[in-house]
Amino acid sequence: MITTALFPNRYIQGFNAIENSLGEELARLGKKALLLESPSANKNLSKTIEKSLSGKIESVVDIFNRECSDEEITRIIELAKAQNIDVIVGIGGGKVIDTAKAVAATIHYPCVVVPTLASTDAPCSALSVIYTATGEFKRYFVLPRNPDVVLVDSKVIANAPARFLVAGMGDALATWFEAEDCRQSKAGNMTGRPGPITAFALAKFCFEILLKYGVQAKNACDQKVVTPALEHVIEANTLLSGLGFESGGLSAAHAIHNGFTALEATHQYWHGEKVAFGTLAMLMLIDSEPQMIETVYHFCQSVGLPTTLAEIGLANVSDDDLMQVATLACAQGESIHNSPAEISPETVFAAIKAANAEGLRRK
């Protein structure tokens, strides 16, 4: 059996990493960079970025249009070609980063990602999630390679609202459970091949870090300070979860998330918040041990992740809408089919209802 793992070329993390390292990392890769920045990154980090790049590399700044869509990717490709760019840099949240990765892959340029939030495991992966222009999940875009550089400034992460860090913990929470599903069913990871034992060990380590340091990391972020616990969870959310999902594989939690995106009421909630509830539903679906269910619900409650449908905007959701979510989660090609559990719209619907009932009972 051939196994395959995927890794970014270089991962950098620490206090003031943008100021101290971004310019020299870009200078290794090209002469002129397109900086695709979220509006908040442009507002808050422009001076720091300019200082880091000064005398090292030319740059052009463009402001992201909020959705990782085919239309936005096409727009940025045209800009990069018109400006004679040779390095693409995504600075912002998960959708900015996914867009930058998709642009770089399409035109075969080096890619550097600078997450300003530890809210998803997108930064390290050779994957972009493409949405419609109005925010519905459209498809996965599997890229030919991982980013050349992932640079995470923990000072920037600490100054973002703690909700983003918590959402990242929700995304990372799914990593071990989904990788374990793939291991048991011998399903392929993002390459289509099974992952190596390294991937599954990293996925489990990710889960252990969340349980050990999650509450203290959130407390540090609430105070806008960087502590060792916060550094550990940033690494778990970004690097360990990224390596774990990509090389270990995805399963039910992310498929259920994708189903939820069809309901407009969920659009104001972050990816990791919906994935966290998808993980709770997945535990019901795969008949997890009661003690593990207890552990995961307790963790979610301790850091503020959703444990009920109401907490992702679905307080009054109908059974018909939940069946739509379940049906979309079971669509052909969805990652839920990597699960060794019995998979059908009916079993997924039941799991969602059961997860919500347990969350309500605990409240």
Results as ranks from 00 to 15, higher is better:
S54T: 05
I88F: 09
G55P: 14
F137I: 07
K224F: 06
P196C: 02
G249F: 01
G188D: 02
I312L: 12
G248C: 04
F141N: 14
S302A: 13
V103N: 13
A167Q: 01
F200C: 01
F260C: 08
I97G: 13
G242W: 03
A201M: 10
K95G: 02
A158L: 12
P306E: 00
I49R: 03
V156N: 06
Q223I: 00
Q216H: 13
L263I: 15
V112S: 14
E264I: 07
P161H: 03
L117F: 09
A105C: 03
S247P: 04
Y140R: 07
L285V: 14
A355N: 11
G93T: 02
K138Q: 13
P115Q: 05
C300S: 03
D181Q: 07
I130R: 07
N316L: 04
L143K: 11
V225L: 09
K43Q: 10
T261M: 05
V89K: 00
I130P: 15
E58M: 11
S125M: 01
A350I: 06
F299A: 01
I2M: 14
D86M: 08
F349A: 04
D222C: 00
E37C: 14
A41M: 02
V112M: 14
Q268M: 11
A5P: 02
K81C: 12
A174S: 15
V87T: 09
S344L: 10
C221L: 05
M190P: 01
I209G: 04
D70F: 07
T238Y: 04
F245D: 06
M292F: 15
A100N: 04
A174L: 04
R183E: 03
L79T: 11
V233F: 13
I197W: 06
I49A: 00
K155D: 15
I12D: 14
K224M: 12
D181C: 13
V348D: 12
E72T: 06
L22G: 13
I77L: 11
Q301M: 07
D153P: 00
D321H: 10
A80P: 08
V142K: 15
S52I: 02
G214L: 10
